[in-house]
């Protein structure tokens, strides 16, 4: 409990900064929405001069992307990108900072098992991410209320927003595993940033070329937001695979860390 509280306190500032940044991004993007809605309306008038087939096909698409939830799910990707960096940084930093800061010796000589240390550290990661997401969702819902003219399906809105938490957990557990496996991490940010951006570019590029296999590779693609809007539900297989991934990486981290030689000064 001491470790948990101490760690939470250490992470307080960065959690606040990340939360505020995510809220700021949401506010920035959602404030653009009224313009998009208007431009969509105007473009539909232009479309009226086209043949009916085109009108139907494109018109439906225009309607769906210029609806509030459609637009939200488009910009949500960039919120997820920042969220993923937060998650990976947190997951990777929480353990490796003891080694980098040479405090591992102090911590490991305390009368607590390594398992307890890991458990409290992992719980801190989950708690920090949870706080971030709860605050973010509240702020985003408020902003949504301001910009959207029509009433929003809040259930779907929160379902979309909650995917951020899941993706963050995946990146955090991956970072957790890396921090245990990689023997000498000098600084966390370059490693976590390149990993997240690698997956992000894979996602962006995968959707441009329409690659199916990419869906299983990059966490950004685990949730098809259009599917969530249509069915008000998640795709079960991705949730299962994602959960297995999280459980497996955390389990391996526990096994490796309890046996690992920790180099002190």
């Amino acid at each position: 409990m001491n470790m948990f509280l101490h760690e939470l306190k250490v992470n307080r500032k960065s959690t606040i900064i990340w939360t505020l940044s995510l809220v700021a991004i949401a506010v920035l993007f959602l404030s653009i929405f009224p313009t998009i809605e208007r431009e969509g309306e105007e473009f539909k008038k232009v479309l009226a001069s086209y043949p009916e087939g085109v009108l139907k096909a494109v018109g439906v698409q225009i309607d769906s992307i210029t609806s509030f939830l459609g637009f939200y799910s488009y910009v949500f990707l960039y919120i997820m990108l920042c969220g993923a960096i937060q998650g990976m940084n947190l997951g990777m930093g929480v353990l490796s900072k003891e080694i980098i800061g040479k405090t591992a010796e102090f911590l490991l000589t305390k009368p607590v098992a390594r398992k307890e240390i890991l458990t409290s550290k992992a719980l801190v990661v989950v708690t920090s991410l949870l706080i971030t997401n709860i605050v973010f969702m509240g702020a985003a819902a408020l902003m949504a209320n301001i910009v959207a003219k029509e009433s929003i399906d809040y259930q779907v809105f929160f379902m979309i927003s909650a995917t951020n938490f899941f993706v963050q957990l995946m990146f955090a557990s991956f970072g957790f595993l890396l921090s245990v496996l990689v023997s000498r991490i000098k600084s966390v940010l370059p490693l976590s940033l390149s990993t997240v951006f690698a997956f992000f570019i894979l996602y962006m590029f995968g959707s441009v070329i329409g690659e199916k296999a990419v869906r299983y590779l990059t966490p950004f693609k685990y949730f098809d937001l259009a599917y969530i809007i249509r069915h008000s539900g998640y795709e079960a297989q991705y949730i299962i695979i994602g959960s297995i991934f999280i459980v497996a990486t955390v389990a391996v981290s526990f096994i490796v860390f309890t046996k690992k030689d920790i180099h002190t000064v």
């Binding site: 920035l28 993007f29 653009i32 313009t35 998009i36 910009v75 960039y78 920042c82 960096i85």
Partner: peptide
């Protein structure tokens, strides 16, 4: 230093997306 530098990078990237979306920006 690294955090701030990457923060600026992220900010400019997010803004570059926002500029695409809104002619006002």
């Amino acid at each position: 230093a690294t955090s701030i530098a990457t923060g600026i990078l992220l900010l400019t990237y997010i803004l570059s997306i926002a500029v695409e979306l809104s002619s006002k920006l």
